[in-house]
Every structure is written in structure tokens, then in C-alpha cells.
């Protein structure tokens, strides 16, 4: 009496057979879509191609898999490739947007004068070897620095207030902060325009722009810092208090050091958000092609604003400069972002 030899079942998620089926259906889908586009052609453009190709791919893959699987297994495989396809679509689009911007701006980035000159004397048809975006870089730096000088102390201390105290007042402040994150950035800009510029009489300037950015960034930073502080383990706080430390010492020596990298990440990511804001700056900063070092006196542009203006120009050279400014902005945001992530990662390593 001998038992039939047991065959070990393959439970791995990705099997060679599936990969072959995937590759085959992908190739078939691309081919079919191409045929439809080349001969039947009811619509055109890469978006139509991707949409039709994706649908065809799913259909072909389902057919292939159903040859050697049944009901639930087919649905499982189909769901897996559909979900993966959606994820790749999102990533592909993101890479496309970032790549398109940097690629289009590359021509202006190759000229060193792009970073050392402003656009004051640049004519519409001047070549790219004349004029640059120094004024916008300076404006961005000054405006974000001023906004951070306001937001950083106010935001972090307010977040500490929200996590370290209890009571009706705390709850009320938390609710209001939460509400203010819903404030559209253009409305923040309109508020500063109507209050500081029209009522108080501050000129359209870098200062007004930085105030608009502050109004917009404050709730974002508070929320992010609040989240980071709240995940500091309660046992750490209690241990410190049990040792007889005052709540001031507990916060300063236990809570804040524990959350330091998380707070840094929150602030850096908030800064990246603030840097890219165009609409509040559009309303409050005015527009100039000159380098303006003093943010309190007269218009001062920033990178997103100069991008926005140059892109709408009918002249090709100006549009290329606009792409260049967008590429610089994108690179700054990506660099800030990577720094933020690296700072955040050290926390996990501990």
C-alpha cells in the first residue's frame, strides 16, 4: 500500500506562468491597440492609446489565465494586474510631469546667466544667453524665510499646546485649526490683499506675499507637528513625570527630543508646500522683472509666480525660461523632500 507521492503546492504569488501570461497579453494588447489606431482609428493621442491598451490588456490576460485556472483564481489574477496597472499609471504620470517640466526647461538651465541675472533688460525675443530668474530665486528665499520666521515658532508651540494640555480651550483651538486647513489658498491671498494692502496700505510686496503664505502654512504645520507629537509614547511622558520632572522639563527634555526628526520632517514638507504656492503670491506680491532685495518695498516675484507669468507669454524664449523656472522650483521641492525623508528615516533607525 503506497500513498501517492505528495506534490508540494506552489503558493508563491508570482509564478513564471503568470509572468509569461502577463508579458504575452501586454504585447498582444499593444499590438492590437496599434492596429486599431493605425487602421480603424476612432480616436487618437497617447491617452486614448493607454486607455484602450489597458482595457485590451485586462481582457486578453483574463482570457489567458482562464485557460488554466478557474473562477476565483482568475479574478484574483485579474485584480492583481488591474491594481498594479493603476499604480504604475499613477507613477508613470508623476514621472511624466516631473520629467516633462525638467526636460522642457533644460535648454534655459544650461546657460549660467539663468541663475545670475534678472529679466530687467531682457527683451521678448532675446536669446537664452541673456536674462535669468535671479530675482525670483531671491524673492522665493526671502518670502519663505519670512514666512518660516512667523510660522515656525507659532506653529510648533501651538502644536505643543495642543498635545500637552487638556481642556475645552484646547479642544476649541484644535477644531479651529482643523477648520483653517480648509481655507483655500486663494482666499488666504485675498484676505491679505484686502486687509494689508487695501486697508492698511502696505504695498504689493514680498512682505505681503510672505504673510499670505504664513496664513496658509500655519494650520498645515500645526496639524503635521500635532500628529508627530501625539505619537510620542505616553509611557515616556509618564516616566518623566513619575521621576518628579515638571511638565516644562518633560516637554523640553523628553517629548521634543523624541519627536525632533518627525518635527523636522513636518516643517520641511510644510516648507515645500509653501514654496510651491502660487495663488496667494499672485494676488499679493505684484509683478516685476527687476531684482528686488528689499521685500518691504515694492513688488517682488517668486519662482512659481515667475513661472506662471512666463508660461503665458506668446514668445518661445520666454516660455522656455518659464519651464526653466518651473524646473528649478521642482528641483528645490524634490531636494527639500528628500532631505525631509532622510531626516524622518533616522527616527525609524533608532
Amino acid at each position: 500500500m503506497s500513498l501517492p507521492a505528495e506534490v508540494r503546492r506552489d503558493t508563491r504569488a508570482g509564478r513564471a506562468r503568470d509572468r509569461i501570461a502577463e508579458t504575452a497579453s501586454l504585447a498582444a494588447a499593444v499590438g492590437l491597440t496599434w492596429i486599431v489606431f493605425a487602421w480603424i482609428a476612432p480616436f487618437d493621442g497617447p491617452i486614448g492609446f493607454v486607455v484602450l491598451g489597458y482595457v485590451l490588456f485586462l481582457a486578453l490576460y483574463a482570457t489567458l489565465v482562464s485557460l488554466d485556472e478557474r473562477g476565483p483564481a482568475v479574478r484574483d489574477r485579474l485584480a492583481a494586474v488591474a491594481i498594479r496597472g493603476l499604480a504604475y499609471l499613477v507613477v508613470g504620470t508623476l514621472v511624466g510631469i516631473v520629467g516633462y517640466t525638467i526636460w522642457s526647461g533644460l535648454r534655459s538651465l544650461l546657460h549660467l546667466n539663468f541663475f545670475t541675472q534678472d529679466l530687467a533688460v531682457t527683451q521678448q525675443l532675446d536669446p537664452l544667453s541673456v536674462g535669468g530668474i535671479l530675482h525670483a530665486v531671491v524673492g522665493t528665499l526671502e518670502q519663505i524665510a519670512m514666512a518660516l520666521a512667523v510660522v515656525l515658532p507659532l506653529g510648533v508651540v501651538c502644536a505643543v499646546f495642543l498635545t500637552e494640555t487638556r481642556g475645552a480651550f484646547t479642544r476649541f483651538v484644535r477644531t479651529v485649526v482643523e477648520a483653517m486647513t480648509a481655507l483655500p489658498s486663494i482666499v488666504a491671498g485675498l484676505f491679505v490683499y484686502a486687509s494689508l494692502i487695501l486697508t492698511v496700505g502696505v504695498p504689493s510686496s514680498g512682505f505681503a506675499a510672505s504673510m499670505a503664505i504664513s496664513v496658509m502654512m500655519l494650520p498645515i504645520i500645526i496639524r503635521a507637528a500635532d500628529v508627530v507629537l501625539r505619537v510620542v509614547p505616553g509611557s515616556l511622558r509618564e516616566a518623566s513625570l513619575a521621576l518628579g520632572a515638571s511638565s516644562w522639563r518633560t516637554t523640553w527634555h523628553v517629548v521634543l527630543p523624541t519627536a525632533r526628526s518627525g518635527l523636522a520632517t513636518a516643517v520641511i514638507l510644510g516648507t515645500a508646500r509653501g514654496l510651491g504656492e502660487t495663488s496667494p503670491v499672485l494676488i499679493t506680491a505684484g509683478f516685476t522683472t527687476n531684482l528686488a532685495l528689499n521685500p518691504f518695498d515694492g513688488p517682488q516675484v517668486s519662482l512659481p509666480l515667475v513661472t506662471f507669468n512666463l508660461i503665458r507669454s506668446p514668445y518661445e524664449g520666454m516660455v522656455t525660461r518659464g519651464y526653466g523656472a518651473a524646473a528649478v522650483l521642482m528641483v528645490v521641492v524634490v531636494v527639500l523632500f528628500v532631505i525631509g525623508r532622510l531626516v524622518g528615516r533616522t527616527r525609524k533607525g533608532k
Binding site: 516631473v98 517640466t101 522642457s104 514638507l269 513661472t307 508660461i311 518651473a326
Partner: peptide, 20 residues
């Protein structure tokens, strides 16, 4: 990380990609 980065891409960049 990429999803978070996507949230941080400035809206003016999305805009110019959309238009052009």
C-alpha cells in the same frame, strides 16, 4: 515616497503640464 512627492509638486507645474 513618490505618492508623498506627488502631493508636494507645485500646482503651477501641474498647470503648465496640463496646458502644454
Amino acid at each position: 515616497t513618490l505618492v508623498d512627492l506627488m502631493a508636494a509638486v507645485p500646482s503651477v507645474v501641474y498647470g503648465l503640464w496640463g496646458v502644454n
